[in-house]
Design a protein around this nucleic acid. Structure first.
Lengths: 331, 331
DNA sequence: TCTATTGATTAGAGCGCTCTAAGCTTGTAG
DNA sequence: CTACAAGCTTAGAGCGCTCTAATCAATAGA
């Protein structure tokens, strides 16, 4: 059995309360006793029991994190940022996945709440807003990649509209006029990207072409085939703004299979700046969001709430940036 | 403030102990009272306080998980498998990263242990064996992608030797005689893969060629350039067993840049079967480990220990399989 | 009718800690 | 010599729950 505070106290010849003070390194403990306690703790291999501490102090150092899919590199990066910030501030993460299934997410949420966490960070949850608001009544909640109007909920999002606009501006700047967007459908963030594309295109006096697709490489291929069948070669869009990197890579494959060179004939821009994009073999021009930073900001927002420094909601909208590589060229 | 068991008891007109029984759905509670308690709990939005429960029952439903890098898709997959199994069995994960830095990992370990978890699962930790054994004295420990001789420690590893052998046999079967391995150096699992390569080659009466490399795409490129500079075109290896998928993709880029076609002139096999490998654009023949399964097995091993069903260590060595795609062809 | 017996319920101690209020030393001033 | 801070230390209640042992009601057996 692990030693308890009582054991340490006995060995150091002091009271349990004093051990407690030393462990929380409170002031007003004489150096003599402090040393003695530390020595005893060391010898016994004592370390405080977080749960007991949490119960007694009515405070929590636990943050509940729900991520719908860890395999998605985006979330993994956010969690990394989150973890780094949390660890530095002495918080622990309890992690759950909901798999983008509302019922499973609800269960995951309940499970997290039963820890009475200091706060909750939900990465792109699909549960109804009412469930989020209910959770927010128990502890501060930060949403990543999802919006909310609730007062107890902070949000951290990347500006998908701005990202698409960046891509459009890049292509337009290179002289492209016929530019198509491979739309991500119902995927997270797809709507904003589509909106941004439309807006930027009309702002440049260009006709927005939107092809329905998905955030996968096979869908990217299919979308290109559809373009090829609806347009004459001469009228084919010369610029493609893909829904994400996978989608872009699929599109590139299909283009090359059909004798079109990238970026010689068609320029392609991805979205997400995944590790895939940076491979020399792929070398995809793409839009990058500050993912780790998003995790850090989410934690920071939570911390402010936990500390009671802020009660009004904050809505972070992070600026994406364009990473120019080898799949885009002057028209 | 969240309602407590006392509140529910008061509302249902029963004792706190009865509420406790209902919450743990113990037998020997009359349907009448059970209903009343459940109703009261529902109305108050009550859910048990896991930490208090854990403290009182002297049991834990928390599993500590340390992963050195979540961005690595391998670990993310393992954690997914772990999480699914744990959730199904009513366990919660508390997650930490150690970043492959021994000192940070030790801190992470300490932090996990302060939760008095039911068990610990360490993914490819770099802390010294003594630290792992110390942890194992406090609770069962399962190691993933790392071996141990300690009696209190179970291990789950993929058979890297077998994986490399699979790749060699595939290439040899296609008629290749000059086969080189792009070695992963000190990366996790690299040693086993190298060993397996050597062994399989000599078993086939072939001369093993090993080029020092790393688990990145740029290192893959460099390794190929090195091969090109040391061999005449006619003597160049016709088969490459890369350290991992990224490495393989880098190698392919370099080969194509130098006028060699894949798989026309050179066949390339990757390792890990990452999402990258399955992209049609890449379509890499590669070795797949059952990653999610590894997570599941790790949890299962832990559960057996927690339940006291087993006290002798178990060493899982999982069989990889070959996924044949388009980067390998008959010589 | 009385006592076992069984099943349902509850009182109360205790898990390992925190925290308030009280107690004990000193040292210094009156 | 007494009074009184100021600085350390500790007693003890309590966090929300579990669990043992005791209580109580109801039924069965003699």
């Amino acid at each position: 059995m692990k030693p308890t505070m009582e054991d340490v106290a006995a060995r150091a010849g002091v009271s349990r309360a004093l051990v407690s003070l030393v462990m929380r390194n409170a002031p007003n403990v004489s150096a003599l006793r402090r040393e003695a306690v530390l020595k005893a703790a060391e010898e016994l291999g004592y370390s405080p029991h977080v749960m007991a501490r949490s119960l007694a102090s009515r405070t929590s150092t636990v943050l509940g994190v729900m991520v719908n899919d860890l395999r998605n590199a985006f979330f993994a990066d956010v969690v990394e940022g989150l973890d780094a910030a949390a660890q530095a501030a002495g918080f622990d993460l309890i992690l759950n996945t909901g798999g983008r299934v509302p019922s499973r997410e609800s269960a995951a949420l309940r499970s997290l709440l039963s820890f009475r966490p200091a706060g909750l960070i939900l990465l792109s949850p699909v549960v109804p807003a009412s469930a989020i608001e209910a959770a927010a009544r128990q502890c501060p909640v930060v949403l990543v990649s999802r919006t909310s109007r609730a007062a107890g909920v902070d949000t951290v999002n990347d500006d998908g509209e701005a990202g698409s606009a960046l891509a459009v501006e890049h292509l337009a700047g290179l002289g492209h006029r016929r530019i198509a967007h491979l739309d991500g459908g119902g995927a997270a963030g797809a709507a904003a990207r589509r909106r941004g594309f439309r807006r930027a295109m009309t702002a440049h006096g260009l006709e927005p072409i939107v092809v329905r697709s998905e955030h996968t490489d096979t869908a990217g291929e299919k979308a290109v085939l559809e373009l090829l069948s609806t347009y004459d070669r001469a009228d084919l869009p010369t610029g493609l703004v893909a829904g994400n990197d996978f989608n872009a890579v699929g599109a590139i494959s299909a283009l090359e299979d059909n004798g079109l060179r990238v970026p010689g004939d068609v320029s392609v821009v991805g979205y997400d700046n995944t590790s895939l994009a940076s491979l020399r073999h792929v070398s995809l021009t793409t839009v990058d969001q500050p993912r780790t930073e998003m995790g850090r900001l989410a934690f920071e927002a939570l911390l402010e709430r936990v500390r009671g420094e802020r009660t009004t909601p904050v809505r972070h909208l992070l600026h994406p940036s364009l990473v120019v590589r080898s799949t885009t060229a002057r028209r």
